[in-house]
Structure formats: C-alpha cells, structure tokens
Design a binder for these strands. Structure first.
Lengths: 352, 352
DNA sequence: TTTAGCACTCAAGATGAAAGAGTGCTAAAG
DNA sequence: CTTTAGCACTCTTTCATCTTGAGTGCTAAA
C-alpha cells in the first residue's frame, strides 16, 4: 500500500488520536493537534480519499473518522513508531519477574496478572505443548501396604505425582518389581505409543496384574496429555469494563464470557515473529471479531513455547503494549530458557 | 420476631414475587397472585407496618415494596419452604460428580464451573486449610549428579514435589544421608516449628551444609503454607451480567473485580451449619454488602473442609440454590471423605 | 377491622427544540 | 491542479417539558 506522505500522516494522526480519546476524530482537531500545516478542508479531502481506500470509516454521516481494521493494519505495519519503555516500566516488569515463583503453572497465571495490572487489559497466557514428550522415569514410593506414590519425570523436566490406593496389599518386593517393569517398558514412549496393547504385553511378560500397571500408566498418560495440550490462563477480565467501548453490556458480555471460558480449546495461531498483532476480523474466534490481540512468544526450554498476550478493543495502544509485552516475554524466556531444567519445578535460584 | 400470620404471608409473598421478577412489588399484584383473600388496601396497611418494622423498603414513594435485608433474613429463617430438587436436577448434579476428575484442585475448579452453569451465578470454591498439617515423609530421588527430586507427603495425604538443582554434585550416599536427616528432624513438625534455628541445629549436628537443608525445608514450608492457607477458585463471573441488578456497569464492576481477585485472602467466616446464607450487610467484605452468598460445606477427610458457594444479588432464589448446593456438597463429601486417603492425588476409582 | 374512593407522588417514557460537531460541495485563490 | 474559505446540510446529543401509569397514604363508610 503506497500512500502519499501526507495521507500517511493523516492516517497516523487519526489513529493515534483515536487511540487516545476513543472518539471519532474530525478534520479540525487534526490540524489543531499540529503536525500538518494545512487547513481542515484539505484534511477533509484526504480523509474522504482514505475512506474510499477503505482505511477509514465513518460511524455516521456527521461524525469524525475512525480507522478501519485495514487502516489499523497499515498503522501497525508501517506507521507506528517503536515505543520506548520508561525506566519505571522496565523496573516494575523486572520486579515482577524477580518474584520467586515456584511452579511454572503458577508463574503463568502470575505473569498474566502482572501484565494485566500493567496494561489494564485482560491478558491470557498459554503454553503450547508438544506431543513428543515422554516419561523419563518412574519412581514408586511405598506409603502403606496398600498405597504408594507414583512420581513421574517427564522429558521436559516436569515432575508429577499421585497417591495411588489399591484394593489389595503389596509387598515391598512386588513394588520394586513393578517399578523396574515400568521403567523398562514405558519410558521414552510418547502418548501415542502407550497403547493398551503395550500394557497387556508388558504385563503378561512380567506376570503382573494388568490392572495395577494400567493404573500407573494411565496416570502417566494423563500427565503426558496435560503437558501436550497446553493450558490457557486468563486474568484481569473485569478491566474490560473500564474501557469505553465496553460500557454497553451487550458488547461486553459475549467477550467476557468467551474469555472466561477460554482455556478449553485454544486455537490461537502461533505467532510468527516475536510479537504478533491480530486486528479485529483477523481473529479466529467469532467473539473476538471486534477486538484485537497483541501477543508475544517466549521460549520454555528447547521444545516448548508459551504465548502471553492482551485482549482489548481494536483501539489499544499497540506500540506501548507491544513494547511491554515483548520486554516481558524476553524476561520470561530468560528465566525459563536458561537452564537445562527449564520447566515447572525448577529451582528458581533461591539457594543461598 | 413474632409477626401475625397474615404479616408473614405478606412478607413471604413480597419476597417470593420479588425473587421472581426483580421488580418492587405493589399491593395490588399481591392480591392478584392469590393466596390472600383481602383487598389491596388491607395489604397496603400491612405493608406499611412491615415497613415500620424494618422488614420492607420502598425504593421511592410511589413504588412497590422490596424486602430489606432483615426481611430476607426472616424469610430465610422462618418462611422459606424447602425446595425439592427435580429429578433432572439431581441427575445433572450426579453426572457432574461422576466425571473422573483426577486432581483435587482441578476438582474444586470443576465443581465451581458445574455449579455456576447450574445456577447461572458466579461461584466460589475454597478449601479451608489447617495450620496443623505436617510433613510425614521426605523422599529424595536422584536425577542427575547435581539435581534431584524432593517428594514430600503431608499429613493430610497431599503429595508435592519439586525438582531441585544444585550448584555442586552430590553422591548417592550424600543424598541418602540428607534424606535420613530430613526424615529424622523435620517430619511431624508444623509450619511454626520449622524454624531456621531448627535447621541450623540439625545441619550442624549432621555436619551438613545449611544451604542444602534449607533448600529442601523451604520447599516443605511452602507446601505447608499452601495447604494451610487454602485456595479460592471462582467461576462464572460473567454470568452476573445477565442479572438485572448488574445491568448498570457501575454496580457490576466493583463486584466483578472483587470476585476475580478474590483468592488471595479469603476471610469468609466458616459456615456453622451445613448450608449458610449471608445476606447483604451480613457480609464481611465491603464489596459484598449489596450481594448475598449461599454456601455449603463439605468434608475432605478428617481435618479439612471445603466450602462451595454462589454469589449473587440479594434477590436470589435461596430455597432452590440452597437445595442444589447442599446436594452437591453432600456428593463432594461422599467422594472425598470416604477413603483414608482423602485428598488430592487420591485414586478416584478407575481401577480396571 | 376492612374496604372503597380519591388525591398525590414519582419514575419512566415520549416528544421536540436547540446545540454542536463534522461533513461535502462550491467557488475563489494560489 | 491544489488548496482554502464559506456555507448549507446531516446527524447525534442534550435538555426541558409533558404525559402516563403504577403505587401509595389517607379518609370515610361499611
């Protein structure tokens, strides 16, 4: 899209003023805000042409102009200047990151809250799973004759455990045998490879009860399932209500419901670059058609990545939010990506 | 509070109609709804007296009457009939409970969602912790020379783990020594007893590095902290917006923010009986002064209990909601309370 | 004690006038 | 050919006024 220099400046002025005020912007207020040394009539002509190009829109005849999604797209791609974070902003982000957060999933939720507080918009945070995770190791710890703890270590260093209870007692030897069997037959297998068939064969070979093995292996499968599918956390949803575009209940309700029920199926396209901006109709879900998403990617170890983003009216201050998100995501990558034990239960460094 | 029989019937009629319609109810509509065979003027007189007693209120002079909090209280305590659940209701609750839910904390969140869908109100679910929980056992599992997994079993049968990474390597013997030391000195101690002093003494006695011990013990303390403080889950917050009393954004926003940020400090008084109803001003938090809470208690094993409840306008249908909640809570108690391994990672019974 | 009748009050909705912001068009100026 | 001033026109927003209707409280009669 090659526009005349002046058209670009008009588009940019309209967009930025609209971002600030949430009101349609008129020709007069643009000349008054400076930058363009022409009369309002000239601006009007330019705006009419920009509207013909589909970059601006008019809510009704005698109102000012508002950027169309296409207009936002051009603004974001070509016109927007990079936002510099203030010292204070970087500081508060750094502080937030330095909090000792123990568990990764809590970290995700916390990260969302932090960003939400920072931006006053709802945020979401999700990990994108990988189907190639396997169990690296099983440990069985006897608790009582008829109960033991399974501890599984997944290939991405997540540890999960569960207390299993049996209808019958088990001797220590039996438990050890089971443990060996599990480690021999069910490690290094991804979710698809853990078939009932495999369980049957292994059980038969060892003369073990199928039920006992399946009990432990189902747990392992659950863990793999969970790690493979990723989770979505959302935070700060009520802050939507502070935005003028959601003052009317009708506009706010569907989006809020969508956000709070998100997390089941997150079919968000993976961001290509480091920061991605989805404007209105570019979104996947119907409920998001009138809103925009700004999201940043971060790395968790080698195989997994996470996405953190904010959701809000198309009018959001893309420059500022993108800058904050990307700074924050960088910090997350630094935290999670550095060690060889990148995930979950990693020691975050509070060793004296 | 002893009212004449007729006053009781008037109060009850007003309350129930208001619960249905959310509109102030006038004298005429009461006679029309049947039950009272007197004229509207008589009702007016009765209502005037009920208002003098502080049981009814008038939004403005020429409007109908609305129950005051005190009026609701009397309705709930004396006038309300028990609601029978329909077959369909019990069925859908049973179905929901039968879902195989693996982890207790997820169960909590799920339970909230279910109730929220059922009632169309926001729900909260929390476990009330106990400060007397101790660690029953430590297990250390070597992973790499400089990394191991700590598994702690708490006295309420919750198992938690964490992957710890060290700056130096550790031999197997050292690890076993550490394990023995931990089990000898730090089990059966509640959060308050796990003092730095104790760590120092134990470390000194064993000639171990203080840092190493404190690393593991701090994790244990975190776990105890978490188990002791309880967690709050909320769900269905946007359904508030469907209620007429929260049509105005100003009324909805503070409550929504409060609910979504709840979970930090849950200073809810424990329900005395099985089901408890808190009406408007009886609530603790300022944000809840205009809303009511209906909550039911359920047991998790011996020591802990959970609370699940709904939050909504004072006008809620107490009878119906209380019935559903209490049925649901009963089901939860049945699920969690039955075994001697009542918590979290309990096997929910999917053994072949 | 109950009831019919009636004047009174107040919120909510409808109507209409006025204000204000912004546009598009035209014609003149550069 | 581009820019600008001028002006009529459009459309929303706001405010005041009026009307309607539900509901009340009071009084006097049953």
């Amino acid at each position: 899209m090659d526009l005349s220099e002046r058209k670009k400046r008009v588009l940019r002025a309209v967009t930025e003023q609209y971002i600030r005020t949430a009101e349609p912007v008129g020709s007069k207020s643009i000349v008054e805000s400076g930058g363009l040394e022409v009369s309002s009539a000239t601006i009007r002509n330019e705006m009419a042409e920009l509207e013909a190009l589909g970059l601006l829109e008019q809510p009704h005849t005698s109102a000012g102009r508002v950027p169309s999604p296409a207009g936002y797209r051009i603004y974001v791609n070509e016109l927007m200047e990079e936002h510099r974070l203030t010292l204070q902003e970087t500081q508060s982000i750094n502080e937030a990151l330095e909090m000792k957060i123990q568990k990764m999933d809590r970290m995700m939720a916390e990260a969302g809250k932090i960003i939400s507080q920072l931006t006053k918009y709802p945020t979401f945070a999700l990990t994108r799973g990988s189907t190639d995770i396997t169990i690296k190791r099983f440990d069985l710890l006897a608790v009582e004759p008829n109960a033991f703890i399974v501890v599984v270590l997944a290939s991405n260093q997540v540890v999960r455990n569960k207390l299993l209870r049996l209808p019958t007692d088990l001797t220590k030897t039996q438990l050890e045998l089971l443990n060996t069997l599990l480690n021999a037959s069910f490690t290094e297998k991804n979710l698809e490879e853990l078939t009932p068939e495999l369980m049957r064969v292994a059980a038969h070979a060892a003369g073990e009860a199928y039920g006992l093995i399946s009990l432990v292996v189902s747990f392992a499968m659950e863990v793999l399932q969970e790690l493979g599918s990723g989770v979505v956390h959302t935070a700060g949803i009520p802050s939507l209500l502070a935005q003028p575009e959601y003052q009317s209940l009708n506009s706010a309700e569907p989006l809020m419901s969508f956000l709070s029920e998100w997390g089941e199926a997150s079919n968000l396209p993976a961001p290509q670059g480091e920061v991605e901006i989805l404007i209105g109709p570019e979104n996947v879900a119907e409920e998001l058609k009138n809103t925009s998403i700004i999201m940043a990617r971060y790395d968790i170890g080698d195989n997994m990545q996470g996405v953190i983003g904010v959701v809000g009216p198309t009018r959001m201050d893309y420059a500022k939010l993108a800058a904050r998100l990307s700074y924050f995501a960088e910090g997350l990558s630094r935290m999670f990506g550095k060690g060889e034990l990148p995930e979950s239960e990693q020691n975050t460094g509070d060793m004296e």
